[in-house]
Amino acid sequence: MDLGRGSGYHGVPRWVYAIAAAGGVFVLLPLAAMAARVNWPQFIPLVTSESSLTALGLSLRTSAASTALCIIFGVPLALVLARSSFPGQRLLRAFVLLPLVLPPVVGGIALLYTFGRQGLLGRSLEAAGIQIAFSTTAVVLAQTFVALPFLVVSLEGALRTAGGRYEAVAATLGARPTTVLRRVTVPLVLPGLASGAVLSFARSLGEFGATLTFAGSLQGVTRTLPLEIYLQRETDADAAVALSLVLVAVAVTVVGLTYRRPGQKDQRSVPAGGTASGRMDGAR
């Protein structure tokens, strides 16, 4: 079948729209159904209860911390994966991306056997007086574990599409590797880094399985918003639905802030002035 229509092709067959609409409805309908179930007159009291606010605050703080950890460890990881080649690189990438496909509860069990009291590192940490289990640190670790691949994938993609040309030029002009990284590479892939960070934040915000398995659940310490929703559901379905909607709203806001311009064309601006705008994936 010839689907090509020659030059200026940007038409999509009409039947694709129909299926796309069905896909969109599949995602939106459950959200609408949930919104319809919200006990609106009680909405404000339900979401501003002390336990809800504590859980929301904890979720935002831990997600911010895990996003920071994702940036600290994810940027070097993405650089190593995108810009160098060494034996075992493909294996390393596969393992770094593993938490993307791993059920979170499996991640929680793995973390338990690493940082838990009887765990691989936990025993030494315990001897040093550091206790991770049942602490907010455990929540951050669980979130970082599941969110790191999102940042690495986004950033590695951005690095690969940006290519190494500007970096090579900078190097020939005498810039040292660290200078090239700081002045050329990072500004060049800043949009990719930003979207990766936002995805990591959103994933951290929704993290449930690994936290429940590894960190436990205590108000103000380890009970994040998803755990609070899970618990409220036992007795107060109205509160659970109201809080779910809050979580959806936060996630939509966060993701919407950076994902609002997927169609923009690359401005192809040279990052000499330190500003890198435009998307890198048009460069292919």
Binding site: A133, F134, L212, T213, L218, E234
Partner: peptide
């Protein structure tokens, strides 16, 4: 308690 779990299994 250091944690209040949502199921006895946990």
């Amino acid at each position: 308690p250091v944690s209040e779990e949502s199921s006895v299994t946990d």
